[in-house]
Design a protein around this nucleic acid. Structure first.
Length: 192
DNA sequence: TGTCCGATTGGT
DNA sequence: CCAATCGGACAG
C-alpha cells in the first residue's frame, strides 16, 4: 500500500517531500491500459520489469513526466502511477519549481508532482530505497479511509477501462482535480 | 524514415 | 474547449 507513504527527494537544490494521497495501478501484460500491455518490452518499458521498489518514469506530451513505482516481482511489468502528493517538506522549493505559491497546485497531478519534486528521466530505473529519491514509512490508513474509482484518461483501453484501480485518501484536499465521472465509487473496505 | 499520438496541463 | 510539444511505437 503506497498511500500514506512519504516520497522524498534529496536534490542539489534542497530536500522536498510529500505524502502519497492518490495512485493508480497498471497491472501488466493483460491490462490494456498499461504500457506493458501484451508483454511490450522496449527501452521505455524496460524499468517496469525491474524488481519492486524501482522507479518507472516516462515522458508525456513531450513536456511532462510521470512517476511510477514498480510493484510486482522482477519480470512482471506492473507499476503504480503516483497521481498526487500532499506537500510535507520543502514547499518553497516546490513553489519555485512550479511557478506558483498555491499549495493545491504544487503536487496535485502526476505531471505537477514530478515538476515540484524535481523528478526527471535521470531517476528512470532507480532503486527507491537506496538513492536520492526514496520512499519512507509515514502514515497508515484503514480501508474505510481509501476511496476507489476508475482510472483517469485511459479511454483508449477497452476491457480494463472501467476497472476500479484508482485509489485516493477520503476527503484529502490534495487529490488531483478530475472530472465528475471519476468520483469515488466506494471505499476499499467495501471491495475487499 | 514517416506518421501518429499520448497514464497532462494551463490558458481561452 | 484546445493547443503545446516531442520521443516512442509501429508501419512500410
Amino acid at each position: 500500500m503506497l498511500l500514506g507513504k512519504l516520497l522524498v527527494h534529496e536534490s542539489p537544490e534542497g530536500r522536498t517531500a510529500g505524502m502519497i494521497v492518490e495512485a493508480e495501478a497498471y497491472c501488466g501484460p493483460f491490462d490494456d491500459a498499461a504500457h506493458s500491455f501484451g508483454g511490450r518490452r522496449t527501452a521505455r518499458t524496460e524499468a517496469m520489469y525491474a524488481p519492486p521498489g524501482h522507479a518507472y518514469v516516462f515522458r508525456l506530451y513531450g513536456m511532462h513526466r510521470c512517476f511510477n513505482v514498480v510493484t510486482a516481482p522482477e519480470g512482471q511489468p506492473q507499476a503504480v502511477l503516483i497521481r498526487a502528493l500532499e506537500p510535507v517538506e520543502g514547499l518553497e522549493l516546490m513553489a519555485e519549481r512550479r511557478g506558483t505559491d498555491e499549495k493545491r497546485l504544487l503536487c496535485s497531478g502526476p505531471g505537477r508532482l514530478c515538476q515540484a519534486m524535481g523528478i526527471g528521466m535521470e531517476h528512470y530505473g532507480q532503486d527507491l530505497f537506496s538513492g536520492c529519491l526514496r520512499l519512507e514509512e509515514y502514515q497508515s490508513y484503514p480501508p474505510e479511509e481509501i476511496c476507489v474509482s476508475p482510472r483517469v484518461n485511459v479511454e483508449y483501453a477497452t476491457e480494463y477501462r472501467d476497472r476500479l484501480w484508482r485509489f485516493f485518501l477520503k476527503g484529502n484536499a490534495f487529490v488531483s482535480p478530475v472530472p465528475r465521472r471519476y468520483a469515488a465509487r466506494c471505499s476499499l473496505a467495501e471491495i475487499k
